[in-house]
């Protein structure tokens, strides 16, 4: 949590975003701003559109057949879906961590190097340095520094997820998107990942099923319901003084 040094710079801005999967209206007029160095959590019941919204931010919905988008999404003022915007370029700046750890069936080292190699980093020394930096940032260095040649598939779930975080961080992204990153992890691994999120200082947008998690780690929280953004505000306010009845019902466990 970086509330004290929040700079109020808008990094991601969504304006009147509507999204359709074929006939299904998945997002309805969503507008929200995400601020630099803050952790923005998105909560809501399954199918509320929070993951769909997250994936729009780095164009991971591009390959979904029959998908259609209206409205604008800007990252640092640049349109994500403009005529000149390049999805590959956007994904290099906006990292993503998925629900299930999805390391490649390669060594830990090669997993982390995947992104840097894509952008043309070849020198061994430079790659070594990037790997160490990324693993340290993901709080995994001490655990795996002697196992870098080992397959990432052989690690525990929590370690795998932190490899995935490190892999995303190796590209030195401006923003990190996380889609329920701890839902497949045990409590200890979850704690480690949460600790990392709170202290990373990155601009993070995280989708979570777990309201307590949102309360623990985020600066701001957005509550989605049936494709609409119901309420968005400071996490403390949203959980203690929700403005909307729906929000209150959800966070008090009356549905969801």
């Amino acid at each position: 949590m970086a509330e004290q040094n929040a700079t109020e710079t808008v990094v991601i801005s969504a304006r009147d975003v509507d999204f359709f999967y074929g006939e299904f209206h998945a997002l309805k007029g969503v507008s929200m701003d995400m601020l630099e160095h803050e952790v923005t959590a998105m909560i809501g019941p399954s199918g509320c559109g929070k993951s769909t919204f997250l994936k729009l931010l780095n164009r991971m919905n591009d390959f979904v057949p029959g998908a259609r988008l209206a409205g604008d999404i800007l990252i640092r003022g640049e349109p994500v879906y403009g005529p000149d915007s390049d999805p590959v370029d956007i994904r290099r700046k906006v990292g993503m961590v998925f629900q299930r750890p999805n390391p490649f069936p390669k060594s830990i080292y090669d997993n982390i190097c995947y992104g840097p190699r894509l952008v043309g980093v070849r020198a061994k020394q430079e790659l070594d340095a990037l790997v160490e930096k990324a693993l340290r940032a993901a709080a995994l260095w001490d655990e795996v520094k002697d196992l870098l040649g080992k397959s990432a598939m052989d690690l525990s779930g929590g370690q795998q997820q932190r490899v995935c975080i490190a892999r995303a961080l190796a590209l030195e992204p401006d923003i990190l998107l996380m889609d329920e990153p701890t839902s497949a992890l045990d409590p200890i691994a979850t704690a480690k990942v949460e600790e990392w999120i709170k202290t990373s200082g990155l601009t993070i947008v995280i989708v979570t099923h777990n309201m307590q998690q949102a309360a623990r780690i985020s600066d701001r929280t957005a509550f989605f319901y049936m494709g609409s953004l119901v309420e968005f505000g400071k996490t403390r306010d949203l959980f203690t003084r929700p403005r909307e009845t729906q929000t209150e019902n959800y966070i008090t466990g009356r549905f969801g």
């Binding site: 590959v88 994904r91 390391p103 995947y114 894509l118 995303a168």
Partner: peptide, 18 residues
């Protein structure tokens, strides 16, 4: 081959062919 491999690579800025 798991879809998650493709997603992971794409999310790291790989082109589809890469």
């Amino acid at each position: 081959t798991p879809q998650s491999f493709r997603e992971a690579a794409l999310a790291l800025g790989a082109s589809r062919w890469q």
